[in-house]
Amino acid sequence: MILGILMGQFLPRIFTELAATFNGLFGNFLEFVIPLIIVGFVAPGIGDLGLGAGKLLGITAAIAYGSSVFSGILTYFTSSLVFPRFLEAGSLVTDAADPSESLLEPLFVVEMPPIFGVMTALLIAFILGLGIAAIKGDMLKKAVGEFQNIIELVIGKIVIPLLPLHILGIFANMTYAGQVATILSTFAKVFVMILILHFTVIVIQYLIAGSVAGKNPFKAIKNMIPAYLTAIGTQSSAAAIPVTLEQTKKNGVRDEIAEFVIPLGATIHLSGSTITLVGVATAVMMLNNMPLNFSSMLPFIMMLGVTMVAAPGVPGGAVIAALGLFETILGFPEPMLALVIALYVAQDSFGTACNITGDGAIAIFMDKISGNITKGSTQEE
């Protein structure tokens, strides 16, 4: 971000045009790969849940999904009330109807049309995932699992390493167009509100888990601080699993429950990432004077919850998996998608920390109710 601002401010125009050309190529590649990402992660994700460990898995997945959706809805209503106090509608120079008007154009364009659209990809993913779960198709499950591995390599080896260059180009172009001052001053305030929402949701999660399990929620949160800090440092839920697991056990969760819920939660529970994505989406729509109402945001939030379950466990993976929803449901053009990526990645570590801290709350809840589930299953047998 800093290098991009300096480039757009002080270097000759040609450098920003080169950056815009890279952004055009990278953006077209993202448009091509987004439907493949959806199929590659959502289909095996649904298939795995259907073929998993019975009631415990189903309830844990439902709680994770509900937590993400609740976080998104809370963020939307909070943003709708708070953002108008410091966001001026339409103040972003880039017009949503013609976002390239004030930005430098690429020197050349290489078209990379996607194989199929995002909604088609979602439908294919749901059909494949539910079909695998229904017929217990081991061969098809293995095939989509291998396809998922390929997409993980594309994300891990191409998309994520090139994101810093993409962000550099975004901020160089915005600086050249005179937009960056508005962006930085505005989103500094947006980020503060997003962080407050992260902490609020963590407290709500532990209040619910504590009331069910009869534990002190604030003591439990205090025990999770090392895991929170580890996630900030690693920007990865998966990398924070060992510390999250250790701290969850300190909260009195049985080993077998903690060792089941925490790795699963690191994959499917992304309430913090949902807060960030919904908050950034709301702010960008307000700045571009786009119509904003709950009826249009609710489908986005509901589908975002599904996408977060399937989001790849790499830094920045959640926003990449969600780009198709921004494009199809909210109508974001490529320059706005690029801005969403930049703003999300800038605080990704805090969203990740919120995600894994919430996993500890789910583990406390599941530890309390798992005895009844096991007892019920035994009686049925």
Results as ranks from 00 to 15, higher is better:
residue 380 E to I: 14
residue 214 G to I: 05
residue 172 A to S: 14
residue 323 L to K: 00
residue 225 I to S: 07
residue 192 V to W: 14
residue 281 A to H: 00
residue 183 I to M: 15
residue 336 M to H: 06
residue 225 I to Y: 07
residue 341 I to P: 01
residue 260 F to G: 02
residue 44 P to M: 07
residue 310 A to Q: 01
residue 266 A to L: 02
residue 181 A to S: 13
residue 262 I to Y: 00
residue 56 L to E: 10
residue 304 L to F: 07
residue 64 A to V: 01
residue 157 K to A: 12
residue 267 T to V: 09
residue 144 V to M: 10
residue 152 E to W: 10
residue 232 I to W: 02
residue 370 S to L: 08
residue 304 L to I: 07
residue 48 D to A: 15
residue 286 M to Q: 11
residue 186 T to L: 08
residue 367 D to Q: 08
residue 37 I to F: 14
residue 284 V to P: 04
residue 262 I to R: 00
residue 214 G to R: 04
residue 125 A to M: 09
residue 373 I to N: 06
residue 259 E to G: 11
residue 120 T to W: 04
residue 357 T to E: 05
residue 35 P to L: 07
residue 61 A to T: 03
residue 78 T to N: 13
residue 91 S to V: 08
residue 235 Q to G: 10
residue 129 G to T: 03
residue 314 V to Y: 07
residue 321 A to D: 11
residue 83 F to M: 09
residue 229 L to P: 13
residue 309 V to G: 02
residue 368 K to L: 07
residue 205 Q to A: 12
residue 357 T to H: 03
residue 322 A to N: 06
residue 293 N to C: 11
residue 23 N to T: 09
residue 379 Q to F: 10
residue 60 T to L: 08
residue 17 E to K: 10
residue 211 S to Y: 11
residue 263 P to Y: 02
residue 297 M to H: 04
residue 126 F to C: 15
residue 324 G to Q: 03
residue 299 P to K: 04
residue 82 V to D: 11
residue 173 N to Q: 12
residue 237 S to H: 02
residue 226 P to K: 03
residue 23 N to F: 03
residue 300 F to D: 01
residue 7 M to P: 05
residue 241 I to K: 01
residue 45 G to C: 13
residue 336 M to T: 05
residue 315 P to M: 13
residue 189 K to N: 09
residue 141 K to G: 14
residue 278 V to H: 02
residue 301 I to E: 01
residue 90 G to A: 06
residue 23 N to D: 15
residue 89 A to C: 08
residue 2 I to C: 08
residue 84 P to I: 06
residue 329 I to Q: 00
residue 174 M to S: 08
residue 7 M to N: 08
residue 361 A to E: 00
residue 194 I to P: 01
residue 312 P to L: 09
residue 301 I to T: 03
residue 223 N to C: 09
residue 336 M to W: 02
residue 240 A to E: 02
residue 184 L to D: 14
residue 192 V to H: 08
residue 292 L to W: 02
residue 147 F to W: 05
residue 246 E to N: 11
residue 320 I to L: 13
residue 342 A to T: 03
residue 177 A to M: 13
residue 264 L to A: 02
residue 95 D to K: 05
residue 111 E to I: 09
residue 15 F to Q: 05
residue 131 G to N: 06
residue 219 K to H: 11
residue 298 L to W: 04
residue 104 L to K: 03
residue 264 L to H: 00
residue 255 D to V: 10
residue 22 F to L: 15
residue 287 L to I: 05
residue 116 F to L: 08
residue 375 K to W: 11
residue 62 A to W: 12
residue 156 G to F: 03
residue 315 P to D: 14
residue 259 E to C: 09
residue 174 M to V: 10
residue 370 S to A: 13
residue 271 S to Q: 03
residue 11 L to K: 07
residue 319 V to D: 05
residue 372 N to R: 15
residue 287 L to T: 00
residue 328 T to V: 15
residue 92 L to G: 03
residue 270 L to E: 00
residue 285 M to T: 00
residue 275 I to N: 02
residue 144 V to A: 11
residue 376 G to F: 09
residue 21 T to A: 10
residue 154 V to S: 08
residue 237 S to Q: 04
